[in-house]
Amino acid sequence: MSELTNMSLPTGNAGDIVLEGRGLNKRYGRVVALDNADFNLRRNEILAVIGDNGAGKSTLIKALCGAVIPDSGEIRLDGQPVHFKSPMDARNAGIETVYQNLALSPALSIADNMFLGRELRKPGWTGALFRRLDRTRMAKIARDKLSELGLLTIQNINQSVETLSGGQRQGVAVARAAAFGSRVVIMDEPTAALGVKESRRVLELMLDVKKRGLPIVLISHNMPHVFEVADRIHIHRLGKRIAIINPKEFSMSDAVAIMTGAMKPPVEGATGPTQHYQVGEEASQVQ
């Protein structure tokens, strides 16, 4: 059980950077998806990544979670350079991703899904010789994780995922990420397919996960949601980060304007404390 509740993080300053990308490049033929892009995620924050369609934000996220290998550039996790060859590598390093399609197996149960790909075997000879699964322990841990996150409406841990509502499925996927992610949770459009009420619960869930000491990268098109939960907003445009803004100092329309190129990205030191607010180095070149 101890290997699963690995939520204690090495203590550090609030400004500590957990996950960092430097000068990431990725080309698909003649299409430049990442053009010397930078990225950083601090401890105990929710960092939103926004950008227009085709801005390259999904390539950036894929590079961070191992689904895409950048042509050049460096990714550092807790200061150490890492080279992810597959999502499994990133997962083993403590980066869990909640994919937009959730990556759940509909016909399998909630408990089965939470442990899919990392099942627990029974201790002793039944586990060693007959590879018998420890279903009781997995069900218990799954139930604990879900109730920790306040997902108590799910009563039967052995009911199949396809019998759940969209929000409940999202809850299972988030609980899985929170249970196994020891360093970073990446969430790709977690509220895109949900109704108002269910979106609300997922946002609460994200704040809960953050409270437990796990930083979150949130990719979303939904500005109200982004501005509600994010501590910083990374704005991606034309394959690179053109600004990081503090949602308390900028309005949603500003963010959209910067994202679409209608407004010049803020210059360093223009407004607010620089603590909250940085500029992409190439910002001036973009315009």
Partner: peptide, 28 residues
């Protein structure tokens, strides 16, 4: 029945048939 219901391999057989992409993303 034991293999399919009580081992990780069995669960992976179901997951592979159910949604291969989800199975792969789950590390199978």
């Amino acid at each position: 029945s034991y293999i399919l219901g009580r081992t990780a391999f069995g669960r992976h057989v179901y997951a592979t048939g159910d949604d291969p992409d989800a199975a792969r993303l789950s590390g199978i």
